[in-house]
């Protein structure tokens, strides 16, 4: 990348459209798997923490440590165990989603007004039915807020997994390539598409939330 080079060389695009499509799809796939698996694990952990409040501290402590490990270090740490694979990348990506998701699920349920809980109990909801039918639905806006943050940060981290090799990394592969070849065009393409993907994913969640929580509209949540 010498100062005189243009930021984008348009003649690069025609030969790379297929690869752009492939990497974009890969990026989406890695993100979806990481957030979906992460949500599944976080949901179980959050239920445990809600039922046995004493577990909440230890669960968030472990998730917090996972979250604090620099991503590159975590990726390379797992290479020793699971090799240069899809699994390595996903384990790390899932690990990063847990803290945010567990915290938001628990906070969402905690945020249910005391009188709503009391009314539910007084009308004959058992503990689990109350959680499923009353508390979790009311917590949805907070849970979806957690999913939005987890998804956007996962999209950023998927790009970093390109450092583990070309089998993963999604749009990050363009960034690594551009850096290696001192060629700005793929780098810009990788960065811009990855940001665009994050914005699109966020917008999708906002839309989904309006759809599933029509009651929260105009309520300021």
């Amino acid at each position: 990348m010498s100062p005189g080079d243009p930021l984008l060389r348009w003649d690069w695009f025609p030969g790379h459209l297929d690869e752009i499509a492939f990497r974009l799809a890969q990026h989406v796939a890695f993100t979806v798997v990481a957030v979906a698996v992460g949500f599944g694990i976080a949901f179980v952990l959050a239920l445990l923490a809600i039922r046995w409040r004493a577990l909440y501290g230890p669960i968030t402590a472990v998730a917090g440590v996972l979250y604090a490990i620099p991503s590159v270090a975590l990726f390379f740490l797992f290479i020793g165990i699971t090799g240069l694979s899809f699994l390595t990348a996903e384990i790390a990506l899932v690990g990063y989603t847990l803290l945010i998701l567990v915290r938001n699920i628990v906070a969402g349920v905690d945020g249910v007004a005391a009188e709503v809980r009391e009314a539910a109990e007084g009308m004959g909801y058992g503990r689990w039915r109350r959680l499923w039918r009353v508390e979790l639905p009311i917590a949805l806006p907070v849970i979806i807020a957690g999913l939005r943050v987890a998804t956007v940060s996962t999209i950023g981290l998927v790009a970093v997994t390109a450092l583990l090799g070309r089998d993963q990394g999604g749009l990050g592969v363009f960034i690594v390539e551009g850096r290696e070849r001192f060629f700005a065009t793929p780098l810009v393409v990788g960065a811009v598409l990855s940001v665009a993907l994050a914005i699109a994913a966020d917008g999708l969640f906002v839309f989904a939330q309006r759809l599933v929580t029509p009651w929260a509209r105009g309520q300021g949540s």
């Binding site: 007004a113 005391a114 009188e115 709503v116 809980r117 009391e118 009314a119 539910a120 109990e121 007084g122 009308m123 004959g124 909801y125 058992g126 009353v134 639905p137 009311i138 949805l140 929580t213 009651w215 929260a216 309520q219």
Partner: peptide, 29 residues
């Protein structure tokens, strides 16, 4: 739990379920 389904209960703060419509709230029990 079964006992409570057979007893009406009204509290000062009401405690309507914000995620259900008025019809849904009334039909809870």
């Amino acid at each position: 739990v079964k006992l409570r389904r057979g007893i009406g209960y009204v509290i000062q703060q009401i405690g309507l379920f914000p995620h259900l419509t008025i019809g849904g709230n009334v039909a809870v029990v």
